[in-house]
């Protein structure tokens, strides 16, 4: 899930300076769970913008704001509002905002900061465990990702800063390498710890990533 946080209202208003008619877009997936762009937050934002003298011409909580075809469909259905709008305020992640970008040529304002791909520990508690590196190494590490959960992304064991099992960078966080050690030990697989891993292939995926799965599907269909 993409973890996002709303930007401060002042920053949003600054971006919307000189524009009156605003179309607010939320997201029914991640931004709903993180309470940054669900139905409730979109309604709240509408009230705050109106208080600040804006006119909210429409609000829509897309099923998933990152789905570009959906987004275009929504704007087609809401053509009048989309035409009346001076700007679109997007309360989803940066991907959602750019999906709105594909659906309009008008000013699109991101209303959140996108933080990380996070696991939901419990309601409103999120932790980053995967950073989408393009080549998953988890099986080497007891399924605890050193690329993401070690502050230095070290692939070969703890740095000298591990402190009572906590990370030197943030004493609130566990040292990933102590977790990995304990896990591999409990699985009796410490030999994996002893493997010397080379540096990551950072270009396992060329950024920006793009996959066109249609060709593969067609091949499958033909077979």
């Amino acid at each position: 899930m993409i973890i996002s946080m709303q930007k401060p209202l002042e920053e949003i208003l600054e971006s919307l300076a000189g524009e009156t008619n605003v179309y607010i877009v939320g997201c029914g997936e991640c931004a709903t769970v993180t309470q940054t762009g669900g139905e409730e937050q979109v309604a709240e934002m509408k009230a705050r913008l109106e208080e600040a003298g804006k006119k909210v011409v429409a609000t829509d909580v897309a099923h998933a704001a990152c789905h570009e075809l959906d987004m275009k469909r929504i704007f087609r259905q809401n053509k009048d509002a989309a035409t009346a709008a001076d700007a679109f305020l997007v309360l989803s992640c940066g991907a959602g905002a750019q999906s709105v970008r594909e659906g309009t040529s008008k000013h699109v304002v991101p209303g959140t900061n996108s933080l990380f791909v996070g696991n939901v520990k419990r309601q409103m508690v999120f932790e980053e465990k995967c950073s989408l590196c393009g080549e998953c190494l988890l099986d080497e590490y007891g399924t605890i990702c050193p690329v993401t959960r070690c502050a230095k992304g070290i692939l070969n064991g703890p740095c000298g800063g591990t402190n009572n099992g906590k990370c030197e960078v943030d004493s609130e966080k566990d040292c990933a390498w102590v977790l990995i050690y304990n896990q591999l030990k409990s699985e009796e697989k410490l030999d994996k710890f002893m493997t010397i891993h080379g540096p990551k292939r950072w270009n396992a995926v060329q950024r920006p990533g793009r996959i066109d799965g249609r060709a593969a599907d067609e091949e499958k269909g033909a077979a």
Binding site: G157, G160, N164, G165, W177, I180, Y181, F193, M194
Partner: peptide
């Protein structure tokens, strides 16, 4: 003096 010492020892061996 790393705490815990076991993973640090293995890193030394590496």
């Amino acid at each position: 003096e790393s705490d815990p010492i076991e993973p640090q020892k293995l890193k030394f061996e590496k």
